[in-house]
């Protein structure tokens, strides 16, 4: 078990987790603890299963036919695979690689989740929308245009809208799949700053190809690598400060110093 010497208690725990696409094993024996109220980044070469693992945490992989898993993932002490998937995704929000606001107004975008969960009271919705947009550092920019389409915003604003949309459901964990890879550097830094503020209330797991981003924005770093049979596994997991100055594994060293392969 790769557990971390960290003060936080584990929020997400994977135990002997394996994932298969048909006959192909994409993830092999993932054993890991992700601490609460911290930012954990997942890095590693392309195709090593980073996103696959991330998408396992809210069972997003189940959308793909022929995915099979063995082993367990726990959220707190609850096995996510025995939980109702809708209930799970309410607790584990997700932000995607490309900003994907719905073609609706800003307000409706943020209110979408609460509405889906049955909230109808307009006053309460308005409150949630304002709080979520404020937490996502977008409120001041859009408060006068809440009826405007989410698609009319800039890329960086759209991604913050998506974060606000995720926050509106009041999740405990936010998964981010390369959330800044489609954004310009300034928008990227804004998102990173925002994530720092969010970790007080949420546990954040972020997949990134950008090593500088992982180094800047995360507390812990999980390094994935590929077995010769192309299945992914965790080669090293530790404090970000340690991984980027003094990784224990040669492969990690090669990967983060750009001498991989």
């Amino acid at each position: 078990m790769r557990s971390l010497q960290s003060n936080g208690k584990p929020k997400i725990t994977a135990k002997n987790f394996n994932l298969f696409y048909g006959d192909f094993q994409a993830l092999k024996e993932i054993n890991v603890d992700i601490p609460e109220h911290s930012i954990t980044s997942i890095i590693g070469p392309s195709g090593c299963g980073k996103s696959t693992f991330l998408r396992s945490i809210n069972r997003m992989n189940e959308l793909i036919p022929c995915v099979k898993t063995t082993g367990k993932i726990f959220l707190d002490a609850n096995d996510i695979f025995t939980q109702d998937v809708v209930e799970l995704r309410k607790q584990v929000g997700m932000v995607f690689q490309r900003p994907n606001p719905f073609p609706k107004s800003i307000f409706d975008n943020v209110a979408y989740g609460p509405r889906a969960h049955g909230l109808k009271n307009k006053a309460v919705l308005e409150e949630i929308v304002e709080k979520s947009l404020t937490d996502a550092a977008l409120w001041d920019e859009v408060k006068d245009n809440l009826h405007k389409s989410g698609l009319a915003l800039s890329g960086g604003q759209q991604q913050r809208l998506c974060i606000a949309r995720a926050l509106a459901v009041e999740p405990q964990v936010i998964l981010m799949d390369e959330p800044a890879s489609a954004l310009d550097p300034i928008a990227t830094l804004k998102i990173e700053e925002l994530i720092q503020n969010l970790k007080k209330e949420y546990t954040i797991v972020i997949v990134t190809h950008n090593m500088q981003q992982a180094a800047r924005a995360s507390d812990h770093t999980m390094v994935f690598n590929m077995n010769p049979d192309r299945s992914g596994y965790i080669i090293e997991y530790g404090k970000t400060s340690q991984i980027f100055t003094n990784p224990h594994e040669k492969i990690t060293e090669d990967y983060i110093s750009g001498r991989f392969g």
């Binding site: 980027f244 003094n246 990784p247 990690t252 060293e253 983060i256 110093s257």
Partner: peptide
Amino acid sequence: QQPFARDLR
């Protein structure tokens, strides 16, 4: 070059 790990050290 934004070096990491051994390069940084």
